[in-house]
């Protein structure tokens, strides 16, 4: 059982207690800060392994805190947010947060986010010449994708998009981020390319493209590529 220390930055007592309880069940140790000033001090004195950060704090903007933490370490930062501020979430992700959960969230969701963020920060070494996720194999050199052993007929853009997703599994990729990385700088706002290609890619790689398993939409924020191989 893990004994990692989680720093919870949350001013609402009901939520921080609940988070504490959820995390205790998963075997984490917790410290709670009710404001940014306190959070910064705890961060510097206790070296937590994970930070859960509520964006709406009494003494200021969580983004500056994310930037400060990012200057020193790459530990997972997971934003806890209310539903209506997707733009804040995107800004927090851009500032360096790893992931987010939206209130109300379940314990299952929270542990999944923490686990995948931890896996990432431990360091993924992209294995040699192919990436495997579930029943999908992407061969980087041969530029071929197999699903259940059958080669898929992908266009170059579809291939690049899938490659980008598979190289960043289980994390939130903001729309602007994907567009910039796959289409190039200057395409950050061309959402409709992304919509079109995610749609066509899903038709090829998903068993049921109306209930996607791999490419999951994070409403108003971006996408997450689900990859459940434990070896990641």
């Amino acid at each position: 059982m893990t004994k990692d220390l989680v720093l919870i930055v949350e001013d609402d007592l009901a939520i921080s207690k609940m988070l504490h309880y959820m995390l205790k069940q998963d075997g984490y140790k917790c410290m709670i800060s009710e404001n940014l000033k306190n959070a910064l001090r705890t961060f510097q004195t206790h070296n937590p392994e994970i930070i859960l950060l509520d964006l709406g704090l009494p003494d200021g903007d969580g983004k500056s805190f994310i930037k400060t933490v990012r200057k020193e370490t790459t530990i997972p930062i997971i934003v806890v947010s209310a539903r209506h501020d997707e733009q804040e979430i995107v800004a927090a992700l851009d500032a360096g947060a790893d992931d987010y959960v939206i209130k109300p969230f379940s314990d299952i969701e929270l542990s999944a986010r923490i686990r995948s963020a931890q896996r990432r920060s431990i360091g993924v070494s992209p294995s040699h010449d192919s990436i495997v996720c579930g029943d999908i194999i992407l061969e980087l050199d041969a530029l071929v994708v197999y699903k259940k052993g059958i080669a898929l007929n992908l266009t170059p853009t579809e291939f690049n998009l899938l490659k980008y997703f598979m190289m960043h599994p289980n994390q939130v990729l903001t729309h602007a981020n994907v567009l910039k990385e796959v289409w190039g700088v200057g395409y950050q706002n061309e959402m409709h390319y992304l919509r079109t290609f995610v749609n066509s890619l899903r038709k090829k790689i998903e068993d049921d493209s109306s209930r996607p398993h791999y490419i999951v939409t994070q409403m108003r924020v971006g996408y997450r590529f689900n990859c459940e191989n434990e070896k990641l």
């Binding site: 959402m191 919509r195 995610v198 749609n199 493209s209 109306s210 996607p212 939409t217």
Partner: peptide, 11 residues
């Protein structure tokens, strides 16, 4: 914005 109806149903 440009919406993908299939995605909307999925969400």
């Amino acid at each position: 914005e440009w919406c993908d109806i299939q995605d909307i149903i999925g969400i």
